[in-house]
Deep mutational scan, measured.
Amino acid sequence: MTSCHIAEEHIQKVAIFGGTHGNELTGVFLVKHWLENGAEIQRTGLEVKPFITNPRAVKKCTRYIDCDLNRIFDLENLGKKMSEDLPYEVRRAQEINHLFGPKDSEDSYDIIFDLHNTTSNMGCTLILEDSRNNFLIQMFHYIKTSLAPLPCYVYLIEHPSLKYATTRSIAKYPVGIEVGPQPQGVLRADILDQMRKMIKHALDFIHHFNEGKEFPPCAIEVYKIIEKVDYPRDENGEIAAIIHPNLQDQDWKPLHPGDPMFLTLDGKTIPLGGDCTVYPVFVNEAAYYEKKEAFAKTTKLTLNAKSIRCCLH
């Protein structure tokens, strides 16, 4: 018999989150649709729960009410004593943790798909938090293969000092899905179709896995975050240069030392320094102006996964 890495157990509980950011409308629209008619997301033997994560922000069509829901799922915020004085999103995070967690427990949901849009030209993107997770690498390989020839990129946010504390991190297997470009507060049919297909293929993978299909060893190309880059700023902290036209919409493309990065209003080009080629992502993302992030630098690498098969009882 072929030796293989056996994944822990079959997958039982899956959640699909929309509206973690209330103005990213593809996930909101799909989740609302699936709450009314969820036939397309159901798979035999699998509990799939669509869920609106930040209903107040969705109602106002804004990213958040008090603070970013997708950055506060750490033990400090989840452990705060519940009171009306807490920011709305912290209270909501505790409610979500109660419903789908608790985080880092045996009772937490197996998989959470968190649906997002970006204003950046990132196409279909899967966000991975753990480079050693054979199950998710296999799932992402399946999704990428199923979507081809449509490109699907994998963004690895594993980093020693950049801690995200994402909404989906309460699950055993957290999956971020990011599709763009799409303006905030807008629905685009092409973007919706791409996100819908990503979810379909992900659920198909889980179904095949649960039925005992063995997935042979595989490898995927990923883009691992190195650092986030702020806009150049003046002495008052105001933005002093904008994304250069040569960099705009060039997510995932190589940016070499000396290539144009920013452009000042008086026409001066600010190039990339250093001696390493990087791959920019979230270029000129609207939501990241407040976070002082013009783009993120990534490096390209390959992740390998062992063969996996479900432990059938």
Rank of each mutant, 00 (worst) to 15 (best):
T2I: 11
T2Y: 14
C4R: 12
E8P: 12
E9Y: 09
H10K: 09
I16W: 01
I16H: 02
F17E: 00
G19Y: 03
G19H: 04
G19C: 03
T20S: 07
G22P: 11
N23C: 15
N23Q: 05
G27C: 03
G27L: 02
V28P: 09
F29S: 15
L30S: 00
K32L: 05
L35S: 10
L35Q: 15
L35V: 10
N37L: 09
N37P: 00
G38K: 14
I41F: 02
I41R: 02
R43D: 00
R43K: 07
R43C: 04
T44W: 09
T44H: 15
G45V: 03
E47W: 08
F51Y: 15
F51C: 14
N54A: 04
P55N: 12
V58E: 06
K59P: 07
K60V: 10
K60I: 13
K60Y: 14
I65T: 14
D66G: 07
D66L: 02
D66E: 10
D66M: 05
C67M: 14
N70K: 14
N70W: 05
N70D: 08
R71S: 11
L75D: 12
L75I: 15
G79E: 12
G79A: 12
K80L: 08
M82I: 15
M82C: 07
S83Q: 11
D85L: 08
E89D: 07
E89G: 06
V90E: 10
R91Y: 12
A93W: 13
E95S: 09
I96Q: 07
N97D: 09
K103M: 15
S105I: 14
E106G: 09
D107R: 09
S108C: 13
Y109C: 12
I111N: 01
D114G: 03
L115G: 01
L115H: 00
N117Y: 02
T118N: 09
T118Q: 02
M122N: 08
M122F: 02
G123W: 03
I127P: 02
L128E: 01
E129I: 04
S131W: 06
N133I: 03
L136C: 06
I137S: 00
I137C: 05
Q138K: 00
Y142V: 00
I143S: 00
K144P: 00
K144Q: 14
T145R: 12
S146N: 10
L147Q: 03
L147R: 00
P149M: 03
P149W: 02
L150Y: 13
C152E: 01
Y153V: 04
V154Y: 02
V154Q: 01
Y155P: 00
I157V: 10
L162H: 12
K163I: 13
K163W: 11
K163T: 14
K163E: 10
Y164F: 12
T167P: 14
R168T: 12
S169C: 14
S169H: 08
I170V: 14
K172C: 05
G176A: 11
G176D: 03
G176C: 12
I177K: 03
V179A: 14
P181E: 03
Q182N: 09
Q182G: 01
Q184W: 10
Q184Y: 13
Q184M: 11
G185Y: 00
V186E: 01
V186P: 03
D190P: 03
Q194R: 11
Q194D: 07
M195R: 00
R196E: 02
K197G: 11
M198G: 05
M198K: 00
I199V: 08
H201S: 06
H201T: 09
A202W: 03
L203F: 06
L203C: 02
D204A: 03
F205T: 00
F205M: 03
I206T: 07
I206H: 00
H208A: 13
H208K: 11
F209K: 00
N210C: 07
G212C: 05
I220H: 00
I225D: 10
E227P: 01
K228W: 15
V229W: 00
D230C: 12
Y231P: 02
R233P: 03
N236H: 15
N236Q: 10
N236Y: 13
G237W: 03
A240R: 12
A240C: 08
A241I: 03
H244D: 03
L247S: 00
L247R: 03
Q248C: 08
K253W: 05
P257K: 05
G258K: 08
D259K: 05
D259S: 08
L263M: 11
L263D: 02
T264C: 12
L265M: 15
K268Q: 09
P271C: 07
L272H: 15
L272D: 03
G274W: 03
D275M: 10
C276G: 11
V278H: 04
Y279S: 02
V281P: 00
F282A: 07
F282W: 11
V283Q: 00
E285N: 07
E285K: 02
E285M: 02
A287R: 15
Y289T: 08
E290N: 14
E290C: 08
E290P: 15
F295D: 01
K297Y: 06
K297F: 15
K297P: 03
K297T: 07
T298Y: 01
T298A: 15
K300H: 05
L301N: 05
L303A: 04
K306L: 08
K306H: 13
I308M: 12
I308T: 05
C310E: 05
C310N: 08
C311M: 09
C311W: 09
H313M: 05
